[in-house]
Amino acid sequence: MPFALVALVLIPAVAGSLRLVELAGGPLLLPANPRMTASPAPVVVHIVCAVAYAALGAFQFSAALRRRRPGWHRLAGRVLVVLGLGVAFSALWMTLFYPRQPGTGELAYVFRLAFGSGMAASIILGFAAIRRGDVGRHRAWMTRAYALALGAGTQTFTLGLGHAVLGTSDLVTDLMLGAGWAINLAVAEYVIRRHRGPRTRRRRAAAATATVGSS
């Protein structure tokens, strides 16, 4: 699973790295984006945090690694909280204070605010849950946060498919951006419920056994 997750974000990670090269004074390797060159700091924070969060966060989903290296899992988790909040808050900053991205409309603006806020809230709730010792809720909220962070990877496919089938327009672009985040959240909820199911059945079985034993 970790390598599949890293592969999903590979295309936006490469594009982000090329943008960093440009902002550092290197050659123009991507279409010019005056919004970013005019105020590069939030872009740099967003790209660096997003690539590190996606790569490091993928290995948090390895059950074998969690069992063998619990200390590493906890340390990486603390780093990921900082990186994830950097991703979410820099995205919100760019949405609120950058000029509107050409080719997108009001719906994309709302999606970015909603899903960026949702990612930040999920990280905070996940961190609060593990501080209480609630591992189940911690995993659920961190899974949702990671799914939202990987939206750019899924959007590579939804945008390509949407433009090929429905044509290019602001509305199509907005809907395909939203679809990328929605698909990732749907998969996250499936994974959360799938892992929650066996634990729920075990708790019910233990409760039934205790009831029979006490009767």
Rank of each mutant, 00 (worst) to 15 (best):
A186Y: 02
G16T: 07
R69T: 08
L28C: 02
T168C: 02
F111N: 05
L166D: 07
D134G: 01
A7N: 06
A188Y: 07
Y53G: 02
S17E: 04
V172K: 09
R196Y: 04
V135Q: 00
G126E: 13
A15T: 03
W181P: 01
R100H: 06
F3Y: 11
G167I: 01
A108F: 11
G16K: 00
T211N: 08
R66A: 15
I124Y: 03
L28A: 12
H163I: 02
P102T: 09
M94E: 09
R202D: 14
N184V: 04
R35Q: 10
E106L: 13
L5G: 05
A54V: 13
A206K: 00
S169H: 05
R201V: 10
R194T: 14
P31V: 06
A63E: 04
R194W: 09
L92K: 02
L65N: 06
T143I: 06
F61N: 07
L75W: 09
A206Y: 00
L177D: 15
V187N: 01
F115E: 03
G213H: 11
P99R: 11
P99Y: 12
G103V: 06
P198Q: 12
R66Q: 12
G197V: 12
A63Q: 07
D134M: 05
G160R: 04
L125W: 07
A114M: 13
V212S: 14
A186Q: 05
W141G: 03
Q60N: 10
L166I: 01
L18M: 14
A55G: 03
F89V: 15
Q155M: 08
G197K: 14
L65H: 11
L20Q: 04
L20Y: 02
R201I: 06
R194E: 07
L177G: 06
R204V: 02
R100Q: 10
Q155F: 00
V51S: 07
V6Q: 03
G105I: 03
V51D: 11
F97P: 02
M176E: 15
A63N: 08
P198K: 14
F157T: 01
L75T: 15
R204I: 03
I192C: 02
T37N: 09
L30A: 13
L29D: 08
F89D: 15
A32L: 03
V81E: 13
G116H: 07
T143H: 07
M142Q: 14
A50E: 05
E22T: 03
A24T: 01
L113R: 07
P99Q: 10
L92A: 04
R204W: 03
H46C: 13
L92D: 01
F127S: 08
I47K: 00
A55K: 07
A164D: 11
R67P: 05
G133A: 05
F115C: 12
L8H: 08
G133P: 01
I124Q: 01
A188H: 12
T104L: 14
Y109S: 02
